[in-house]
């Protein structure tokens, strides 16, 4: 009995000795369980590809002690994801891969009661340009031919894109307004499905991000006609921009990571550090180049300003759309 007691005492002592340095380490916040890595879009689209790439880099470089578990919540133009993240029971383990519906969906659906400024800025991984694509069998090779074709079809030209009021519809609406085009618009749940239906010629044109269309472009199925970037893209040097055509418009999809509202400062610092490492990795820099994304690095304060600016811009764009 005595012996046991003594043993217990010494074990407790040993445990204390081990516990002391452990506590010092614990001040640096570390995730204690798998991280809910929510994606604002369905599987296969641009945001999804990026999320899975980031997850893979983090795993490959062993940057996290707990895995990032991708969780597609694309419903309702990302509203599903916004609700999920803003009501998360454990904000320290919930982060969100965003696109521009981060700005548009709360604007269009005030009743959701989402205030994006309550979210926690983590990292701006880059911005993704938009390109107008047609199928090679359409015979269209230039933007001028495209405009002529759409006008000739008089309202029967079909384009696909993501849900109403989302990025694709904004770009197409601007283009339609600028060139007086009457386009039939079919909403899909993600850019992957849109690209697939252009490849199968179920629809006639799309404004996919380069990453979504690249495989089909390289196989020779898709033809790029017009870019909505500020400058011509290095990977598509022959594709003119809409700016060159005399319209002061450019549009990018943000590829940013944000934390759930109410995330602790320590956790936010952890994720900011984590995604800085991902951003600086060779793989991510290579991805930016190969998928034609533009870098746009910002710190947390700059991100908040950027959000405010984007909300303002999108308010104007949506108002112009009559939303």
């Amino acid at each position: 009995m005595n012996l046991t007691k003594r043993m217990l005492m010494s074990m407790a002592g040993a445990a204390l000795m081990f516990a002391a340095p452990m506590q010092a380490v614990a001040q640096d916040w570390q995730p204690r369980k798998p991280i809910d890595f929510v994606i604002m879009a369905g599987a296969g689209g641009g945001a999804d590809q990026i999320a899975r790439f980031i997850q893979a880099v983090a795993e490959q470089e062993d940057l996290t002690t707990r895995p990032l578990v991708p969780n597609n919540k694309g419903g309702g133009s990302g509203a599903e994801a916004l609700i999920h993240v803003s009501t998360a029971s454990d904000p320290d383990h919930t982060i969100l891969v965003t696109l521009n519906s981060f700005f548009t969906t709360p604007l269009r659906q005030q009743n959701l009661g989402i205030d994006i400024q309550t979210f926690t800025p983590v990292a701006m991984m880059g911005v993704d340009p938009f390109v107008l694509w047609v199928h090679k069998d359409s015979g269209i090779t230039t933007f001028e031919e495209y405009v002529a074709k759409v006008q000739e079809m008089d309202g029967e030209f079909v384009m696909g894109g993501t849900g109403a009021g989302q990025e694709d519809s904004i770009v197409i609406a601007y283009m339609s307004g600028a060139y007086d085009l009457d386009i039939k618009y079919i909403p899909y749940d993600g850019g992957g499905a849109v690209a697939k239906d252009l490849a199968g010629q179920q629809i006639m044109a799309t404004v996919n991000n380069p990453a979504e269309a690249k495989g089909f472009y390289e196989a020779g199925d898709f033809v790029p006609l017009l870019a909505f970037s500020d400058e011509r893209m290095p990977a598509y040097p022959d594709v003119p921009t809409i700016k060159e055509m005399g319209h002061d418009f450019s549009y990018y999809n943000q590829r940013a990571i944000v934390g759930a509202p109410g995330m602790s400062e320590e956790a936010a610092a952890y994720y900011q550090d984590l995604f800085t490492q991902v951003y600086e990795s060779e793989q991510w820099q290579g991805y930016l180049t190969s998928e034609s994304l533009s870098p746009l690095w910002m710190d947390a304060a700059e991100q908040r300003d950027y959000w405010a600016l984007q909300v303002e811009n999108h308010q104007a764009l949506l108002a112009a759309l009559g939303e």
Partner: peptide, 9 residues
């Protein structure tokens, strides 16, 4: 849930 086409709950 959400309507995919219009995005409304």
């Amino acid at each position: 849930g959400f309507d995919q086409i219009s995005g409304a709950p």
